[in-house]
């Protein structure tokens, strides 16, 4: 990967194990500031684990992750997690309405979210304002993903980690969300790290792409690499399509 860019986040020889299971193996690399990096790889490769490490939900067994040349362990966890926002793969919700969920990031800091602002956020992710006071239990998978994205965006993080946020969306919603994320990236210079199993999306959205397999980074480079991967295993993965 080009070193011309300032890294927003640098990963240095990170390993992560749970018990005897070695989930991430010697991960090293940088995510360029203000760019979109897509993360692809078979399920179980360790993509989600890598994002949780960056957000500080878990800590590496060895190695370190740096932001502004300081290890993330030196930041206050709450501060780090606001700076490096994450939209979790399962789009979990707290009990209550869409509004309660959208307001959560503010509420955690003792602030309120004005209803007008909440409606504007809903429109950004393509949900009608009628949804604002719906119980989240009544929403579809795709609608939950939209609420989850909107909620994470409310922290206005400088680095955004997105974990398969469009997997349950129909085609038109998918493009709407892609446009929104690209807009945020361009407008605020937000660094984006985006896990997707949609290889087409990984190429069209990404500036750079990492291919993870079995806990290792197999190939990295500009997202076009997926058109003609150097590595034989990656080529097979790409040809086999996403799983």
């Amino acid at each position: 990967m080009s070193t011309l860019y300032e890294p927003a986040l640098h990963i240095n020889d990170v390993n992560y194990s749970m018990g005897d299971v070695h989930i991430l193996k010697n991960i090293t690399g940088s995510f360029p500031k203000g760019k979109i990096t897509t993360l692809v790889g078979p399920s179980g490769a360790g993509k989600t684990t890598l994002l949780k490490l960056c957000n500080g939900l878990i800590s590496p067994t060895s190695g370190d992750i740096f932001i502004h040349d300081k290890p993330i362990s030196s930041y206050e966890p709450t501060e780090l997690r606001r700076h490096v926002g994450i939209a979790l793969q399962s789009a979990p919700m707290i009990k209550g309405t869409v509004y309660h969920n959208l307001a959560l990031p503010m509420e955690l800091q003792g602030r309120k979210l004005a209803e007008q602002d909440a409606i504007a956020i809903l429109e950004d992710v393509g949900l009608d304002k009628l949804f604002l006071h719906r119980k989240t239990n009544d929403l579809s998978g795709g609608q939950l993903q939209k609420v989850s994205i909107a909620r994470t965006l409310n922290n206005r993080s400088e680095i955004l980690l997105l974990d398969e946020i469009t997997s349950a969306l129909d085609r038109s919603s998918l493009h709407e969300i892609e446009e929104l994320i690209v807009k945020i990236n361009r407008k605020y210079g937000t660094t984006i790290i985006w896990i997707t199993h949609n290889l087409e999306q990984a190429m069209s959205i990404g500036d750079y792409t990492w291919v993870l397999m079995d806990g290792q980074v197999i190939e990295t480079g500009e997202s076009d690499l997926l058109k003609s991967p150097m590595n034989e295993v990656v080529r097979q993965f790409v040809q086999g399509g996403a799983e």
């Binding site: 957000n55 939900l57 966890p77 709450t78 501060e79 997690r81 606001r82 926002g85 994450i86 979790l88 399962s90 979990p92 919700m93 707290i94 009990k95 959560l104 990031p105 955690l108 800091q109 909620r151 994470t152 922290n155």
Partner: peptide
Amino acid sequence: DETELILSLG
């Protein structure tokens, strides 16, 4: 899940 969510949001 909820606990992890709230932690992840700071």
